[in-house]
Computed example of a mutant assay.
Amino acid sequence: MLRLALALALLLLASPAFATQDRWPALFDVSGVAADDVLNIRAEPNAGAEKIGDFAPDARSIEVIAPNERQDWGLVNVDGRTGWVSLHYMVRQPGQWLGAPIETVQCAGTEPFWSLTRRGGTVTWSTPEAETSGTVTTPLDTIARRDMSGVIYRLESDTRDHLVMTLERCSDGMSDYAYGIRAILTRDLDGAPEMFGGCCSLDVD
């Protein structure tokens, strides 16, 4: 009986019905803004703060890094800095609950400079010297850590690499942008293992 109860508990933990907690960062679309108006981006999460930019009334796939404490404003990156938009005029795109796989992401790091873009089953690895593509071979998921996921992928150069992503605040060390995904990436080229660290964004366009 104990084994059955434990199995049911694990099943619930792994199911989308249990994992209804929202994941951050997440992609949002602007909603409820008049066609001749814009959604203001503020320096602070209040309507009286300095305006530092805006989104068009039909803007889509805006990455919101995290909400404020009241969850009525969302942190975004714009024009080299971070700002805040009212979540009253934003609609979260579906399928972004905590534990759901991240299918589209762009990661980058420094020392040395590198970037990796994943769109579904396709991966592109870039450095200042070269660029190569590949395919995802295996997803990496864990029930115990729904804030952590990753993939194993193989590039045209025949490396078998790993990308592990953790949902936590991250800085690229070069800009004032905020990121909500930290990345650890390993490569093994010709028997010479390497490990890279960096940040990821859901906005790859």
Rank of each mutant, 00 (worst) to 15 (best):
Ala9Pro: 06
Leu12Ser: 13
Leu13Phe: 12
Leu13Lys: 12
Ser15Asp: 12
Pro16Val: 07
Ala17Asn: 10
Phe18Arg: 07
Phe18Glu: 03
Phe18Val: 08
Ala19Asn: 14
Thr20Ala: 15
Thr20Leu: 14
Gln21Thr: 15
Asp22Val: 12
Asp22His: 12
Pro25Leu: 06
Ala26Asn: 08
Phe28Asn: 02
Phe28Gln: 02
Phe28Lys: 02
Asp29Thr: 12
Val30Tyr: 00
Val30Cys: 04
Gly32Asp: 10
Gly32Asn: 11
Val33Gln: 05
Val33Phe: 05
Val33His: 02
Ala35Phe: 12
Asp36Asn: 15
Asp36Trp: 09
Asp36Tyr: 08
Asp37Cys: 05
Val38Gln: 08
Asn40Glu: 04
Ile41Gln: 02
Arg42Met: 11
Ala43Lys: 07
Glu44Phe: 13
Pro45Ala: 07
Pro45Tyr: 05
Asn46Asp: 14
Asn46Ser: 10
Lys51Gln: 14
Ile52Ala: 03
Ile52His: 01
Phe55Val: 04
Phe55Trp: 07
Pro57Tyr: 04
Asp58Cys: 03
Asp58Arg: 11
Asp58Val: 08
Asp58Tyr: 03
Ala59Val: 08
Glu63Gly: 04
Glu63His: 04
Val64His: 00
Ile65Cys: 06
Ile65Gln: 05
Ala66Ile: 01
Ala66Gly: 05
Ala66His: 01
Ala66Met: 08
Asn68Val: 02
Arg70Thr: 10
Gln71Ile: 00
Gln71Thr: 05
Asp72Ala: 08
Trp73Thr: 03
Trp73His: 06
Trp73Cys: 04
Gly74His: 05
Gly74Tyr: 05
Gly74Lys: 03
Val76Pro: 02
Asp79Glu: 05
Asp79Thr: 00
Arg81Trp: 00
Thr82Arg: 08
Thr82Gln: 09
Gly83Gln: 06
Trp84Phe: 09
Val85Phe: 01
Val85Tyr: 01
Ser86Met: 03
Leu87Ile: 13
Leu87Phe: 13
Arg92Lys: 15
Arg92Pro: 12
Arg92Cys: 13
Pro94Trp: 03
Pro94Arg: 11
Pro94Cys: 09
Gly95Ala: 13
Gln96Ala: 13
Trp97Glu: 14
Leu98Ile: 09
Leu98Gly: 12
Ala100Pro: 01
Ile102Pro: 04
Glu103Asp: 13
Cys107Ile: 08
Ala108Leu: 07
Ala108Asn: 03
Thr110Asn: 11
Glu111Tyr: 11
Phe113Arg: 12
Trp114Gly: 01
Trp114Tyr: 12
Leu116Ser: 10
Arg118Leu: 07
Arg118Trp: 00
Arg119Asn: 09
Gly121Glu: 14
Thr122Ser: 06
Thr122Asp: 10
Val123Ala: 00
Thr124Pro: 00
Trp125His: 06
Trp125Ser: 02
Ser126Leu: 03
Ser126Ala: 12
Pro128His: 09
Glu131Gln: 14
Thr132Tyr: 04
Ser133Leu: 03
Ser133Pro: 00
